[in-house]
Design a protein around this nucleic acid. Structure first.
Lengths: 214, 214, 214, 214
DNA sequence: AATGAATGAGTGTTCATTCAT
DNA sequence: CATGAATGAACACTCATTCAT
């Protein structure tokens, strides 16, 4: 588990810091969504957060801090929602449910996921690695689910294949968000889930990939 | 086929325009790679291209033009290299070769692909759709290859599954670039190709996904 | 009466805005005087006003705003000083006093009047009409004075002649400023007033124009 | 008579220089009319003149040279047209005809006069004095006409009054151009001539100013 | 004599950040 | 703790002028 990366605040009252940063993040996400990190000014963030530019700087040190806070909070929320998945039982059925659950979270938090997806690269190296570490934790969740399936014989994959599959699943979730311009014109989230699941596990519908829908 | 989108130049000599823009693109790609589009200044671009800021603006009208030129040129080059694939014969073997070929192109043009991947969103709507249209053409290539396999019975997929697969393959290529921080530590491009191909077409090695490497 | 045309400021404290704009206008007039609007840079204006370029832009939005503020303030001041004229009594004597008063104001505010005179054309259409409306109000003052003289029989002029005379008087005032290179070498303001008054109202010295000084 | 002020040209062929400068002036006047001297670029001038920027600079040395050429040519043309006035006969009737003639020239060359009027200030001191000297020559013409009237008893004015009147007439001509926004909405040039003449010489219609139109 | 590509100083404007109140 | 006025480095872009061809 990654160590908490602290953003310095001048204000001491931790409850207040938490609250102000909440406002800040909500405002910033909505702005980044519209215009991206670089085109959003700190003044706009302060205004959207409901306080002055001076106050903003009482709770962060640089503009980049806002971006970090935003990315961090988004991962936190995704991870939170993902945590309802039971990693222990681990049948193929559970894996599929996990995937469906994850895809639906991405669908619901589309804007946030997109923002994070497009802006992490603007973080400093340190902040970026911190955030990406969280991403790997999520990939790890899928890896574990897949592993269980391998262990109970429902999937027969090498460790390398398992890990790659976990990565692929994770990216396919994000893909629903970052390729929405192409995908969401054609499919609903439910169709997307069904199609991708079919492609990932053709045999599980007792058909090979060669026979899906055949 | 998309209509050519022309960027206006003050200089009339077309050969010269071509050449200068070549220099400009090479310089810009290398800068965008390091610092992204927004953090790169027009002066830096001019310098990297080997001429003055005044000259830069003889060949473009706005900074965004540079980004468009860069994205356009990258797609052009990827597409060019992809064009060696024979879309007509269409056995499963050809599809796999096509995928491997595409993944290798992405590997070689990694920096460019990453740049384009991260910066398209900064283009104006018009320029972005133009570029994305090119992307869909590439997806279309895979779709056609897959369709052939379906037609000759090597793959049995509905049209929806076929299209989704085409998208997935395309994204998995890019994924090698944009998730290099995670993937390239662990795998070589050849391993990546093998693993992803295995996962995409498990039955083709006469094994279901459930048995790969088993 | 023209509606107030507001120039937007980022700074909220109205008293401060007033003060800073005062500094700005004083600095700008002196610069425009020397080098004209186009050859004066915003940085020079800021410096002359006594603050930084950043601060300048807290009180205006574009360079043109400065020009408008300058023109507006000059008219305001001229009009203010003119307002001491009593428009109601209206003997020929009052008209002449009014003219003399106006000519003296132009003399004292020579630089300002010249600046405004030469630079209004650089204003946007909207701003220009706003400023010119004020000019017409001043012309209107002379028109009213003349009208009174016509009503009490001291001048016998058609309405058209009255209006033209008002315009002419107004221009003759400005003329003292914009033709200073020719006039002020030869005449003092008092001589100018006397000569022009004689030419405008020859009969009033109980001589026709044909006999002035004869 | 002022000494000719020469603008240096690299090209030797005087006939060619004359011709090219003619093209240049025609193009420039039309541009200055629309956007003023400062907002017009040398490239635009070259284009409007029908040749390249390189060629433009074969016939002038700086952008200001173009402005000088333009102002000079306009004065030249006005003076040329004015030269048809007979300065010798000199009755009051001739003076009035001269005024009418001058006002009509201004009316016809309105755009040119306005351009010159608004842009002389952008000339260097040297060039400006040269041009203004020409203006004084024109004022001198009116002065001479007026003097004749004084000599033959039709006007009885001191020398000072005479000179002032000459200036005033000259400015009233320009006024028709530079105050067109106010005057030309209300009057035709013929009305303007009549009204101003009436105001200038009230007695000549055997009425004092006090009785015009009465 | 004519061209037009190249130059770079200079322009208006923005915006992250600070700090006195 | 909160405010918002002040700052100035930095930016995209322009344009008069030069000079090799």
């Amino acid at each position: 588990m990654a160590v908490k990366r602290e953003i310095q605040a001048s204000v001491k009252d931790q409850k207040l810091v938490e609250m102000r940063r909440g406002q800040m993040i909500r405002g910033a996400v909505s702005l980044f969504k519209q215009k991206g990190f670089h085109r959003t000014t700190t003044r706009e963030i302060a205004k959207a957060a409901g306080f002055s530019i001076g106050t903003l700087y009482e709770y962060i040190r640089t503009k980049e801090d806002v971006l970090f806070l935003v990315c961090d909070s988004i991962y936190e929320r995704v991870q939170n929602r993902l945590s309802s998945i039971d990693l222990e039982t681990g049948s193929l059925q559970d894996l599929k449910l996990g995937i469906a659950h994850y895809f639906r979270i991405v669908d619901e938090m589309q804007d946030e996921v997109l923002v994070m997806y497009q802006e992490v690269k603007s973080l400093s190296n340190e902040a970026r690695s911190y955030v990406l570490k969280k991403e790997l934790e999520m990939v790890g969740m899928f890896d574990q689910l897949i592993r269980r399936c391998a262990e109970n014989g429902e999937l027969s994959l090498t460790r390398d294949h398992q890990k790659m599959l976990a990565h692929t699943i994770f990216v396919q979730g994000q893909m629903w968000g970052f390729r929405r311009w192409a995908l969401q014109k054609t499919y609903t989230i439910d169709e997307y889930i069904r199609l991708q699941t079919d492609l990932l596990f053709p045999e599980s519908s007792s058909k090979g990939l060669a026979e899906i829908g055949g």
